[in-house]
Every structure is written in C-alpha cells, then in structure tokens.
Amino acid sequence: MLFKTRLKSIGVVAAIAATLLSSGVSADSGDKILESSCVECHDLKGAGPENLTELWALKGPNLSYAGNKYKQAWLEQWLAAPTRIRPTGMFYGNHIKPGTDEDVIKQESLVKHMALSASDAKVVAAALMHRKAKSELITPGAYKPGTISLRMGELVFDKFRGCLGCHQIEPGYGGASGPEVYTLGNRLQEDYIISFIQDPQAWSPLTFMPNRPLKDKDLQKLVHYFRALAKEKF
C-alpha cells in the first residue's frame, strides 16, 4: 500500500514536471497576457452562464476550450488583425433596436476588438491552444475529409436545415444573430464543428442556436461546405 501511494506521488510530480516542460516559455508569457488583458471579457476557465441574466451579460466568447476549437494559424492572424465575426455582438438583444421595417443593428454599440502585436499574437495563440476544457465532447477524427459543390452545400445549409436564418454565408447575406460561417473552414477545427452542431448547448450553455438532430451524413456535408466556402474570395 505504502509503495503504491509513493508511486502515485512520484507520478504526480512527473506529470507536473511534464506540463511545465511542455508549456514552455512562450505559452507562459501568452498566459500572462491572457490573465491581464483578456480575462475582463473572456471566460478562461469557467463552464459558462447558469441563467439568462448571465447569458445576456457575456462580454466575449468562452476561451477555456480554445485549444479544442480554433486553428492556431487563424488565431495568430486574427489576434493581430481582428475583424467582426458576430454581426450583432455577443447577446444580439443588447445590440438591436426596432427599425422602420425589421429590427436593425445598433452599430454604435459594437466595439472594435483590441489588436495584438504580431509577436504577442503568436505567444497568446500558443497559450490558447493549451486551454482544452470539455475535451470529452470531441471525437478525434469525427470529420472525414471530402468535398461538396457550393450549390449542394448551400441547399443543405439553407433549404433543408434552415441554418441561413441566423448565419451569413457571404458578407451581408444571411441571418445576423449567429457568427458568420464563410470563414469557419479557416477558423475552427473540423471535429469541433461536428461536435458543436450536434449539441451547441453542451459547449455554450443556454445559447440561442437551436439543437436540431442531424444525421452524420449531413454533418459531414456541412463541414465540406464550410471548407469550400472558406476558399472563396469575398
């Protein structure tokens, strides 16, 4: 018994040493930036909102699972030169007002994202890739690479599944309450996309994307479509 506990504690020490080694110096300075400049708007550890009041108050997407979600190359490039991804901000209800016909976006209420220097963007992107909350929701290799024509893809996304209602498939075309999908193929890991569509609320509690049951065949087609869209030059 005594022997086993000792073995265990040796194991723990080894594990700590391994994490320290693998995180390296660069991720370390990235973490410092995250804790000092980003934590005011981004959840870096927590699971997400527990009620609607907390959902409405969110100031930025949850980054605790960034390493399961983003492509590192995209993070590096976006952090240095951020562009808008959600046309109506985090909780859309805070950024719209009734217009003469339909509700319109209060552009003045949307703030520009801070930009990092290229070298800071690099270390922060590396640090973000270490944040891997909710790994249990990912099935590695769930996405099987393949292709689909843009026309067929749009048919699935729009006519068959109604996703266009909330997402833009090119700048200015589609719904405004969800993130743009024409950059998804460059932005997000394919296995994450599959997992997110299957259960949006498991990743983002209480979020206002519906949970529509889809067959694996459709999920694969949708990711083929996002990859094809991301190759277009808009």
């Binding site: 609607l52 959902l55 409405w56 109506t88 909780f91 859309y92 209800g93 719209i96 007002k97 009734p98 217009g99 016909d101 339909e102 509700d103 319109v104 976006i105 209602g165 909330c166 719904g175 405004a176 309450s177 209480l206 206002f208």
Partner: peptide, 17 residues
Amino acid sequence: TYCWQCHGMLANGMGVN
C-alpha cells in the same frame, strides 16, 4: 433570448434575421 432574433423585439415577425 430565443425568439426576438426572428420574430422581432415588437413580436411583429420583423426580427433582425
């Protein structure tokens, strides 16, 4: 939270989407 996006803030079917 869930319906304004399409049915509108005034519930008149005129949402931002």
